[in-house]
Simulated assay, not measured.
Amino acid sequence: MLLGPADVRRLAAELDIRPTKKLGQNFVHDPNTVRRIVTVAELTDDDVVLEVGPGLGSLTLALLPACKTLVAVEIDPVLAAQLPHTAAQRAPGLADRLHVVLADAMRVHAADLPAAPTALVANLPYNVAVPVVLHLMAELPSLTKGLVMVQAEVADRMAAGPGSKVYGVPSVKLAWYADARRAGPVPRSVFWPVPNVDSALVAFRRRPDLLSTVDRKALFTLVDAAFAQRRKTMRAALSGWAGSAAEAERRLVLAGVDPGIRGEQLSVGDFARIAATV
């Protein structure tokens, strides 16, 4: 049922598909890897899974038996057209669970999908991984959990906590929505073509206690300002955001945050308290 290396190359040849860096296409061709992804994703029979960038269908075929419905969002029209045929050939008893949406995941809204997804499971293009996850978490409140395969360095940033050298804007913004953790490495050899970077899995669960008293856009603007110049203290980094260094200090003190601290030391809760000051 699952696609192996020979199957992936044969399908690509039949479709005259040449993986492009522009679309971040690195197709998984190892059955054990997609089985592992499905296991780590902890799906249930009631889950509606959203897969972004299904490509030739390696992960798609592994996901079909593990969920109620699978919504695959694919930007490439050739790949999108082929996927239902691959599912029908490889998993005829499960093919009716698959719904393919030809679209750019960065522009997808809930109304564009045939069902409300509860889980995001995807091998994401490296160049848009973080924006895609943040966009989908914002647009699809039904998403309660996810497991994504991304570049290893991106995985580190997504899952980092305060105080880490790689903690930054992606870390804080994802933490606004969910608790994230690194869920293991993925070797380069499982992809075709072989990428020149390492990959890793990131698992996350939506936070039940979203800081709803603070406007998300206002908070994200604050976070962007705080990390624009990492070496600066919060008093200096937020001077433009607040209107002056003195006003930044006033708001920081009001929020119970040391004006001399740097953004990398603050949690999403700290940022929320700062954003809530007036």
Rank of each mutant, 00 (worst) to 15 (best):
A183V: 06
E42H: 11
V108M: 07
D112I: 06
T39A: 15
G243I: 00
A160Q: 06
W241A: 06
H85I: 07
G24W: 02
I37V: 15
V52L: 11
P195H: 09
P162W: 02
M137N: 14
V130C: 11
W241E: 07
A95F: 04
V52S: 10
P117L: 00
T118K: 01
R97E: 10
P187G: 13
T69D: 07
P259M: 02
P77L: 02
N123A: 10
K145G: 03
V186L: 06
V148S: 07
T69L: 02
A6I: 10
P259C: 08
A119Q: 03
A95E: 09
Q89V: 00
A87H: 05
A95H: 00
L83A: 05
R157Q: 14
R9Q: 14
T221Y: 04
S171Y: 00
A13I: 00
Q151L: 04
E249T: 15
T213D: 15
V202R: 02
I17S: 05
A160L: 06
Y167M: 12
A88L: 10
P187M: 11
F220V: 09
V154Y: 03
D215P: 10
T69C: 06
L147C: 08
P77A: 06
A272V: 15
L59F: 07
F27K: 01
R273F: 06
T33K: 00
L124N: 07
V169W: 09
V253A: 13
E14N: 05
R230T: 14
R157E: 13
P187N: 12
K21C: 04
E249A: 13
L63H: 11
D224L: 08
A88P: 06
Q229M: 11
M1T: 14
G4S: 11
A110S: 14
P65I: 04
A105C: 14
A62S: 11
A122E: 12
V71M: 04
P185F: 01
G24T: 11
R250M: 01
N196E: 12
D258W: 05
A175Y: 00
L222Y: 09
A91Y: 00
F27D: 01
G53T: 10
P117C: 09
R36M: 15
G24P: 12
Y177E: 06
I261D: 13
A72V: 09
T44R: 09
S199N: 13
P92M: 01
D198I: 07
D45T: 10
F204A: 06
S142Q: 05
G53F: 01
S142L: 04
E264T: 03
I261W: 05
A66P: 08
